[in-house]
């Protein structure tokens, strides 16, 4: 862990802030996974960690390595691009398959096929 002492103060502060902010955003997303009541509202929670959390922590990693090793090749961009491209696809497919399963079981609060009118918004009770 000795290399971290070489980090100058002007770089250390943004690295720390980005790390803490990114992990807190990810934690809030995961707490949302616990707290929200229906599956469809839980579908929104991981996007927090996947968009803001990944960007912040990858930025911290980029900044840290760039200052420490004087290496201005940002290969953490790859992770950002992969995650941002792939997470929506995953969530879309998951939402579609959940809707399909709910329709087969004829659950309440799930929009039917070929009905133009909307169901009233469900209210969640904690």
């Amino acid at each position: 862990m000795s290399h971290l002492t070489d980090l100058p103060l002007w770089a250390a502060i943004p690295v720390c802030l980005l790390l803490l902010a990114g992990s807190i955003v990810t934690l809030i997303g995961s707490i949302g996974l616990l707290r929200l009541k229906s599956f469809y509202s839980r579908l929104h929670a991981p996007t927090l960690g996947a968009s803001a959390g990944v960007i912040m922590i990858c930025l911290a990693s980029m900044l840290c390595f760039a200052v420490l090793q004087n290496r201005w090749i940002f290969h953490e961009v790859l992770i950002i691009v992969f995650i941002i491209l792939t997470t929506p696809v995953t969530l879309m497919l998951l939402g579609q398959s959940a809707l399909y399963r709910d329709r087969i079981e004829e659950k309440d609060g799930v929009p039917r096929k070929t009905t133009p009118d909307l169901p009233t918004p469900e209210t969640e009770t904690p």
Binding site: L43, H44, T47, T87, G95, Q96, L99
Partner: peptide, 11 residues
């Protein structure tokens, strides 16, 4: 729409 946390594309 799906990358935006508030909305999710279902079908």
């Amino acid at each position: 729409l799906t990358a935006t946390p508030g909305t999710a594309w279902i079908e």
